[in-house]
């Protein structure tokens, strides 16, 4: 994960206006936002610059199936710096078919509160 520049430019995606925000970090550890046409832009920028969260998706090979891959995602976004640690946990998975869509493959992965879910149904070999 790379360090962001001191002033971050981002487009607010909360409504179709799409304000282009300039977000500077303050000495107090907060942010100063410019370019927003409404207050929502400030909380959007705070969240995205100070505490960005991401969902992530990948796929893992299943044991004993013809359709070899089980796709997975998280039940909720996790702090961005947890992306690679969580991917490493998912990388150890070899789910045994049958797998149900929505099945929890890892509960509360690395204590993030998010579960790793299967996003595809894979039947067992018949």
């Amino acid at each position: 994960m790379t360090d962001r520049p001191a002033v971050d430019r981002l487009t607010c995606v909360l409504c179709p206006v799409g304000c282009e925000l300039e977000v500077a970090r303050t000495a107090a550890g907060g942010v100063a936002v410019a370019g927003n046409r409404c207050d929502k832009g400030v909380s959007f920028a705070e969240e995205e610059v100070l505490r960005p969260k991401r969902n992530l998706a990948t796929s893992v090979p299943a044991k004993g199936t013809a359709a070899r891959m089980v796709s997975v995602r998280l039940s909720a976004p996790v702090p961005r710096e947890m992306i690679f640690p969580v991917l490493a946990e998912i990388g150890k998975l070899r789910p045994e078919a049958p797998v149900r869509r929505g099945q929890v493959l890892i509960a509360d992965v690395l204590g993030t509160g998010a579960d790793v879910l299967a996003t595809r149904t894979v039947r067992g070999q018949t």
Partner: peptide, 25 residues
């Protein structure tokens, strides 16, 4: 959709964001 495993689908049809394979199923 089967190969689009990332999430972000279905906001308008299902009112939640899910992955491509879930949407397809």
């Amino acid at each position: 959709l089967n190969q689009c495993v990332h999430d972000g689908f279905g906001l308008f049809l299902y009112k939640e964001t899910i992955s491509g394979p879930e949407y397809a199923e």
